[in-house]
Computed example of a mutant assay.
Amino acid sequence: MAPAGREVVRLRVVAALESGAVRTYRQAAELFGVSERSVGSWWRACRGGGREALAVRRRRRPGPQELISDEERGTLFQAMADYTPEELLIGGPLWTRALVAELIRMVTGVVMAERGVGTWLRRHGFSPQRPDRRSYRQDQAKVDAWLKEEYPAIAARAKAENAAVAWADQCGLRSDTAPPGTSWAPKGQTPVVRVSGRRFKVNIMSAIAARGALYFTVFTGKFTAKTFTTFLDRLARQAGRKVHVIADRHPVHRGKSVTTWLAANRERVELHLMPGYSPELNPDELLNADVKRHVHAARARSADDLAHETRRFLHRRQNQPRIVRGYFHARHVRYTLE
């Protein structure tokens, strides 16, 4: 194994012992395919001298133009793809330029400035990106089953029945939420946005279809079974045909009242629940984000004012089916178009 690869293995072994993922040298050795003696040596070295003691000593460097060899570069990129800095005992959950520089230094012995790291990463096809969030409670097996079996079966049934498929979700807007976005201003002079200072909230229940249709209701009360079934009834009437509604596993969606209503309206509406803790699979989440980005709840003077602004924005989106269709082309929900 190349020195860079050995460096990553040492960091992973010590990280596993520190986190409690493995409890003995033997378990660590079996898990990572190394000897118990090596595990013990690395652990004692790290306890006595920190991460620096795990560094692999190098006697040479590659040529003058590229100080990091192709083999070492491959190891670095693989480590960044497979692990977070936290898992390698370097830092937090995100790969910043500073932490990439630290990884490069520890794995290859090459010292790079943060600016140079950014240039180097861009040269090799990397870019700074906002990470997606995933719940620890998400069941990947259920997600895979949804993508490969359950959703394709729903889409096939809807096509055979000449029915529509609508993706539904609910969200809320609060007046005490900070205004979205940023504003340019002189350094040291933070810009000020005037807000009402009062606390109130409106809720939105919406559904979208891949061809650009948008259905919604805005209300100030709690989200209840009555609210949901009323929305489903209106959705079916406006669609003019049977609708297969896909939603998350909110307790209201699984309640007895909703189940009873669906049984009585099975020819008009069929509800399908997505895997738990998987909002990224629902295109309607992108509409929610769009609403929160453009409706400035903090500037509303009352709940009625906020409800009015929210309805006005959603009516505008109803007349912009091109934008609604665009939600379905985001990377995580593109499967809905296949």
Rank of each mutant, 00 (worst) to 15 (best):
S206R: 00
V202P: 05
G74L: 14
A225I: 12
R157Q: 15
R6C: 14
S175T: 03
D305L: 04
E270A: 08
H124V: 08
A2N: 15
A141W: 06
Y25N: 05
V202R: 04
R130G: 08
G109I: 09
E66L: 11
S196N: 05
T190R: 02
E280Q: 12
Y215H: 03
H315M: 10
I246M: 05
A53F: 15
V202W: 03
F126G: 01
L337G: 07
A2T: 14
V110P: 04
R58D: 08
A330F: 09
R249G: 09
L306M: 14
R241C: 11
D290M: 07
A16F: 02
V252K: 03
G197S: 08
Q140E: 14
F313A: 03
K201G: 04
M274T: 09
L235K: 03
A53C: 14
R37A: 12
P152K: 13
C171V: 01
A79F: 11
Q170T: 08
V13M: 05
S183M: 01
T220A: 07
W167P: 01
A264M: 11
S69M: 00
R73M: 09
K142L: 15
I323T: 15
E267M: 06
K201T: 06
Y136N: 15
R97V: 00
L286T: 02
V39Q: 04
L121S: 12
D248Y: 02
R211D: 13
R254C: 11
R105V: 01
A298I: 00
G240H: 15
W43F: 08
D305M: 03
R10D: 07
A163D: 06
V9G: 15
Q138K: 10
S183R: 02
H244Q: 05
